[in-house]
Design a protein around this nucleic acid. Structure first.
Length: 555
RNA sequence: GCGCCUGUAGCUCAGUGGAUAGAGCGCCGGACUUCGAAUCCGAAGGUCGGGGGUUCAAGUCCCUCCAGGCGCACCA
């Protein structure tokens, strides 16, 4: 890596200056190299002179000049080094290293951008985990896109990733769900009973009931209320779950594990977990309930594990779930939760500590909510009235590529305003089409070359030093950044930076295309530019692939 | 009241403690006899919510205030 070579070069220079008595400092600090925002400041810059200023009791400019004086570029991969601004040292690399980048891209293809950073570390990413009592909303779509993309990125970096969906198929809401379907069923068959106050009022409940009537008629009318509710709960649950799987699959998300909360109760895992917490002496009884002392591990109040009624809480099951995750050997567990659950984080972390696991094996990404708009007007959504736009409808309206891409353009810390009208109306100006257009354009150029009887040569046989135009160099520099961007997206859990990268890359290609003719009479230059074009195509595909967005040949 | 997130161009948002704060959309003006004009070029547009502090350097870190969102269950 060029960056490491530069660092060594700088360290060495500082050592020499020290030895010569021109810099009176202790240890040579960690050399920080950054990519300047402005290319007039070179390919890389370091702030080390400014960092040393106070210690060496010299102006940062003087230090920078001293470092420069002792810099020894034996290999001549630098074309220029300068001191600038408040004491930056800017490094300008020869264009040869950019040619090397093209050769690497061309050789590695879809492997470019991948690495073994993760070293096979076992990571579990739990996301979406929507309650199986109704259709998913657009917020779930955001977590689906973010979680799946993060998983793609981590897989590319050599982590062993499991995508997991936790099914909350237990507890009061499931009972209410069964009851809601049962009441609608009876109503459809002419019984005059009122709908429960806390029931799910969505139209989909009626649809499910109607299907049951169509399939089996009135044969469940004679069952007891309890029997009917239980039967319908199971039947409706399966239907809802299958539907969620289908919608997520249509969105390109394929979970490895669908983990049932009920199983934790059935298998006794919840009881075992509570017993272990008891054994560790972190629980106590009060008001007839069993409490976990989460406050000793950073929570602001203690939490109930077993209710007065003897039923374990959702929290107790969730602790058992996380214990199960660690028992399965995951070294890192990432949960994506909506902002409406952020208050839950300290208690979950506390529970993990209470079980004796280190706190940082669990990382919770809190994603802000999605606000839906239609033509500038907010769309009111309410679970109670059942008035909502489902993820399925959104996908049908705007399409998978646009939906995924849109969900990934913003930081998870920012709420996402999703205007359906806008997304549809702007469909041709949507950034996703901008990026895809660049790819389609490249495909078209490659076809054109073939029609002209030109066979593109491998990068290693092409004179890439011919690529000297500003737009060519800019494009190559952007290609060179890809690996770092992918790594940063993984380490900071910020998949959205990939969409920005994709747009930058597409933009630089469009500029290059406008300013440089790819296929011309100059055979060597044509080959060089075809190589650059092909490498751009490869990276566009790689980044779109990570985002789960298609790279069309034609649009 | 307490906690978390947010506040950056007309709008929607980027911005790993560094140099002249960026992009898309919108608005205005240009560019197709030649590889895809779903493109490109140019112009306009900013007290980075306010005030303190840390630092050689703050949109970024700390404190405080203001505004908005979301939480604060023996619900899930």
């Amino acid at each position: 890596m060029i960056k490491e070579r530069l660092k060594d070069l700088i360290s060495l220079s500082i050592e020499r200056a020290k030895a010569a008595g021109e810099l009176k400092i202790g240890e040579v600090p960690e050399i920080v190299l950054e990519r300047p925002k402005e290319k007039i400041f070179g390919d890389w810059a370091t702030n080390v002179a400014m960092v040393l200023a106070s210690e060496a009791k010299l102006s940062s400019l003087d230090i920078a000049r001293t470092i420069l004086k002792y810099l020894d570029d034996k290999q001549h991969f630098l074309t220029k080094v300068e001191v600038a601004g408040a004491g930056f040292i800017n490094f300008f690399l020869s264009n040869r290293w950019l040619s090397e980048v093209l050769k690497e891209v061309d050789a590695l293809r879809e492997g470019y951008g991948r690495s073994n950073l993760g070293q096979g570390q076992k990571v579990q990413i739990e996301f979406v985990s929507a309650n199986p009592v109704g259709p998913m909303h657009v917020g779930h779509g955001r977590w689906a896109a973010v979680g799946d993309t993060l998983a793609n990125i981590m897989v590319a970096l050599g982590y062993e990733v499991t995508r997991e969906f936790y099914i909350n198929d237990y507890g009061t809401q499931m009972n209410i769900f069964g009851k809601s379907v049962a009441v609608r069923y009876c109503q459809l068959l002419g019984r005059d009973i009122s709908f429960p106050e806390d029931g799910y009022r969505g139209e989909y409940i009626r649809d499910i009931a109607r299907e049951i009537v169509e399939d089996d008629g009135d044969k469940y009318l004679n069952l007891s209320e309890e029997e009917r509710e239980e039967l319908f709960r199971k039947r409706a649950y399966v239907q809802v779950l299958e539907h969620m799987k289908k919608v997520l699959y249509d969105m390109g998300v394929d979970f490895d594990v669908w983990f049932s909360e009920s199983d934790l109760h059935r298998s006794g895992a919840v009881n075992t977990t509570v017993r272990e917490l008891r054994k560790r002496d972190n629980v106590y009884e009060r008001d007839g309930a069993l409490w976990l002392e989460t406050t000793t591990f950073g929570d602001d109040k203690d939490r109930v594990l077993i209710r007065e009624s003897g039923e374990p809480t959702y929290f107790a099951a969730d602790i058992a779930y996380h214990k199960n995750k660690f028992e399965r050997g995951f070294e890192k567990v990432i949960n994506l939760w909506g902002a409406d659950h952020h208050g839950y984080v300290p208690r979950m972390k506390a529970a993990i500590k209470a079980l004796g696991y280190p706190e940082d094996v669990l990382e919770v990404i809190i994603g802000q909510l999605v606000n839906l708009y239609k033509g500038g007007e907010p769309v009111r959504m309410s679970k109670r009235t059942g008035e909502m736009v489902t993820l399925e409808e959104l996908l049908q309206e705007v399409g998978r590529d646009a939906a995924r891409y849109f969900f990934l353009t913003r930081s998870t810390d920012s709420p996402l305003d999703f205007d359906i009208e806008l997304a549809k109306r702007q469909s041709t100006e949507n950034p996703v089409y901008y990026v895809q257009y660049a790819h389609a354009r490249i495909c078209s150029i490659m076809d054109f070359a073939r029609e002209k009887g030109i066979t593109p040569l491998p990068a290693s046989e092409v004179d890439l030093e011919l690529l000297v135009h500003e737009s060519e160099l800019d494009l190559m520099r952007k290609l060179a950044e890809f690996g770092e961007v992918v790594e940063r997206a993984a380490l900071q859990c910020t998949p959205h930076i990939l969409t920005r990268y994709a747009e930058d890359l597409a933009s630089l290609f469009h500029v290059f295309y406008t300013q440089c003719r790819v296929i011309s009479e100059d055979r060597d230059l044509t080959q060089a530019r075809l190589t650059l074009t092909r490498c751009t195509q490869i990276i566009l595909r790689n980044v779109l692939n990570l985002l789960g967005v298609s790279a069309p040949r034609k649009m």
